[in-house]
């Protein structure tokens, strides 16, 4: 049995815990505590990492890890991303500067993003249409990256499934012709 890993990252409140819960076959292990940060309205926030899993028919397991959102935990990101199959960056379009948030993760994972499959999921777009998906694509282009950018609601399993499927498609493209 082999274990694989998919990493969910993004700012606090973007929906990492919710996304993992939407697809995990087991109730996700959640390491959250009461939120004492007055800048965010969430009652609780992740301080360790969230953990879910999917077992394939082959018996192999795919672990779903969610990073803590605050930048002060970025030392964990480099540890968690090692040997990951792919990275899902969840952005919250209701935050004051979502593109600045995206930059944090593009720069934080810059070395890995040269090879690692990655998809950007933008949440809360219907209620907060600016910046638009094209602005995210422009931001990626400024970092010399061409990555899928999708409008998602991580409370919907189908949307989280689509995010994972785009990672799989990127792996498929890498394997093609080998």
């Amino acid at each position: 049995m082999t274990e694989y890993k998919i990493l969910f990252t993004g700012p606090m409140g973007a929906g990492k815990t919710t996304a993992i819960g939407a697809v995990s076959e087991t109730p996700p292990v959640i390491t959250d505590v009461a939120n004492t940060d007055p800048g965010h309205g969430k009652p609780r926030t992740t301080v360790g990492l969230d953990f879910g899993q999917l077992t394939l028919a082959t018996g192999d397991r795919v672990r779903l890890f969610g990073t803590p959102g605050q930048v002060r935990f970025d030392f964990l990101w480099q540890i968690l991303v090692r040997n990951a199959l792919g990275l899902i960056v969840l952005c919250d379009n209701s935050r004051p500067d979502p593109l600045a948030d995206l930059r944090v993760y593009l720069e934080g994972f810059a070395a890995e993003l040269k090879e690692l499959p990655c998809v950007i999921g933008v949440g809360r777009l219907p209620g907060h249409p600016a910046p638009g998906l094209e602005d995210y694509a422009d931001e990626l282009a400024r970092h010399d990256l061409v990555l899928p950018v999708l409008d998602v609601d991580v409370r919907r399993r189908a949307d989280v499934t689509l995010l994972i499927d785009t990672l799989l498609a990127q792996i498929e493209a890498s394997l093609y012709g080998e």
């Binding site: 192999d60 990951a84 199959l85 890995e112 090879e115 499927d165 799989l168 792996i171 498929e172």
Partner: peptide, 24 residues
């Protein structure tokens, strides 16, 4: 070594298995 060589290999068969697991 390029970073991808250090990553676990994921074959087309596993991709299909994963998609099936997700209901795709």
């Amino acid at each position: 070594q390029p970073p991808s060589k250090a990553r676990p290999s994921f074959t087309q068969g596993l991709i299909s298995s994963f998609r099936k697991r997700l209901g795709l």
